[in-house]
Design a protein around this nucleic acid. Structure first.
Lengths: 220, 220
DNA sequence: AAGAAGTGGAGGGAAACCCTTCGGTTTCTG
DNA sequence: CAGAAACCGAAGGGTTTCCCTCCACTTCTT
């Protein structure tokens, strides 16, 4: 979304955005190997347009990842600005992220992309880590408020959001939305602190960023 | 798993079971349109064997669904037998179902299958409803014990289990297991009753079986 | 209104997938 | 333990899906 974009013609820029939005959804639903023609179709454009803007799949994936990162950052700022309490901000953030159908791309695919992708503001990985620290601060504060359950991690929240957002196959879009919204409420409940916090700590350790990166690296 | 099976040769029966297990996983991961060759590969058999046993995709899907239903029933019985309290049984049940990687197939696909599929013990739909009632009883009891959160539904639990079980694409199997197990703990936390129950009821209504069926019917 | 920039669709080549045929192997039965 | 029946996997032809480029046409910009 940087220097190249500004020189694009108006309609071209519009199309570019539509492509990224469509790609975000399709990647979320079908994974990173989804047919590009499906993305083009859903963006309401021809396949050639997609190829001109993004020469290959890899480029598109990277842009979507970058876009997602930016989106999360914006929503995080917006949420903290709108709520004086960290818990309130966190809840709004999670709701918004699910609403945006944030794709799988964000935490994944960092292994192969670290070195070559510098957006405006550092590499993908740098920006992700920065975002992670912001969220860590938010969760810590919410825990000090006594409203977020102890032992919960930004990673827990990210992965939870991703699992929530991911629609079930075969089922229609409308039903999937109902399901997601309902499960979202349950998920928020699981984040909420209760009197049981001390008596029943969570059984498993939360995952860390390092855990993710290590495993993803291994999976090539 | 009925009359036809008993007359199968030993190796054939073994293979048949492997196919169903593999199909359960693949359908869970990729949806009902997953390539049959992938299923055969994962079952460790040739494609011809799969086709001989299940003439077309529809037959296979139906058998997997039936198998899933049976599996859930067994686990439910086992869980209630092992725990005097309903909450304990419920927790064991959920853990086991996630472990089994129960496929998406169960609650879905009833629209087209109701009429022609009679296993031993009624149609698919009948058995599903029967299972649902069993679970409803279990959840009601757990709520009377004051351990299961008010307003929660068997459907909530089923769908939660499905969302949990479904692996994220691109990520390796091992990491996916870590993620699933961690999110499972969070999910169980969201089912647990707390002092907040009365002060903060869940925002959204739970879905009912009718909701599911209606929407699935519409999506043809 | 003219030129630059952008667009969609057709289509060839490659890959994935479906499903059947067939020579060889394993299990069952007497 | 041997013959028959049942079963198996690999190879392969036909079809569909997908990738990606070329080019005549359309839409912006000034």
């Amino acid at each position: 979304m940087a220097e190249n974009t500004t020189r694009l013609r108006a309609d071209a820029r519009r199309n570019r955005e539509q492509i990224i939005i469509a790609a975000r959804e399709v990647f979320l639903e079908q994974g990173l190997h989804a047919p590009l023609e499906e993305i083009a179709r859903r963006a309401g454009i021809g396949i050639a347009t997609l190829y001109r803007r993004f020469p290959d799949r890899h480029t598109l994936v990277r842009q979507v990842a970058l876009d997602n990162l930016t989106l999360v950052g914006e929503e995080l700022d917006r949420a903290t600005a709108a709520h004086p309490d960290a818990w309130g901000a966190l809840v709004q953030l999670v709701r918004r992220l699910v609403e945006l159908r944030l794709s799988i791309v964000m935490p994944v695919l960092l292994p192969g992309l670290e070195e070559d992708a510098h957006g405006e503001g550092g590499t993908l990985k740098t920006r992700r880590n920065q975002l992670f620290e912001q969220m860590e601060q938010l969760t810590r504060t919410a825990q000090q408020e006594g409203r977020l359950r102890q032992g919960i991690n930004p990673i827990d929240i990210w992965l939870g959001v991703i699992k929530l957002s991911r629609p079930l196959p075969v089922i229609g879009g409308e039903l999937n939305e109902l399901i997601t919204n309902r499960q979202l409420e349950l998920f928020l409940g699981s984040l909420h602190a209760t009197a049981l916090d001390t008596s029943e700590p969570l059984r498993r350790q939360p995952l860390t960023l390092d855990d993710l990166d290590r495993h993803l690296k291994m999976a090539e």
